[in-house]
């Protein structure tokens, strides 16, 4: 079976860990996270006749990548950037953030996910799509389990490219 390292990045509190929780239930203890700023979960996904073991690095830290060692980005096959639809400050500088992540990881593409869909109305979502400086790939709710599977499926597909 092939194993792929994939990244989840985004500001504190946007719901990265909640999304991973939805997707997998296989986790390390909290202690390690606070010390080294990463949570690693694994999940085996069947896709296009292939089994892929995803090693999901849930990278904690602020948008300035404070305390996140650069080495964490190395060797990853795909990345998902998560922001909080209900908090403007988590998506205002999204274009710069994505550039920086592409540089650090060497990836050509980063999946953009707006989370906490359940906190907003359809109209508000429509407006946000216009403000956000990049194209949003998925709008999810970890709370209501909306689109979580879809977002991770795309992540898996990209990891195989």
């Amino acid at each position: 079976m092939i194993a792929k390292k994939v990244l989840l990045i985004g500001s504190f509190g946007v719901g990265k860990t909640s999304l991973v929780r939805r997707f997998v239930l296989n986790e390390f203890s909290e202690n390690y996270i606070s010390t080294i700023g990463v949570r690693i979960s694994t999940k085996t996904v069947a896709i296009e006749d292939e089994e892929v073991k995803l090693m999901i690095w849930d990278v904690a830290g602020t948008s300035e990548e404070e305390n996140v060692p650069k080495a964490y980005f190395l060797g990853s096959s795909a990345a998902m950037y998560v922001f909080d639809l209900s908090r403007e400050e988590t998506y205002l500088n999204l274009d710069k953030e994505i550039e920086s992540i592409k540089n650090l990881s060497g990836l050509d593409e980063v999946i953009i996910v707006g989370n906490k869909r359940d906190l907003l109305s359809d109209d508000e979502i429509f407006e946000i799509r216009k403000i956000v400086p990049v194209t949003i790939d998925f709008i999810t709710s970890a709370k209501e389990n909306a689109n979580v599977e879809g977002a991770f499926n795309l992540l898996t597909q990209q990891s195989l490219k």
């Binding site: 194993a3 390292k5 296989n26 390390f28 390690y32 010390t35 080294i36 700023g37 990463v38 690693i40 979960s41 694994t42 073991k53 090693m55 690095w57 060692p69 650069k70 080495a71 964490y72």
Partner: peptide, 20 residues
């Protein structure tokens, strides 16, 4: 149980310590 996860954690710990 999950050696892949342990190896990932080890890399992370190593990178973190080197960085720190």
């Amino acid at each position: 149980a999950d050696k892949d996860m342990v190896s990932g954690m080890l890399t992370a710990i190593k990178s973190f310590a080197e960085d720190a």
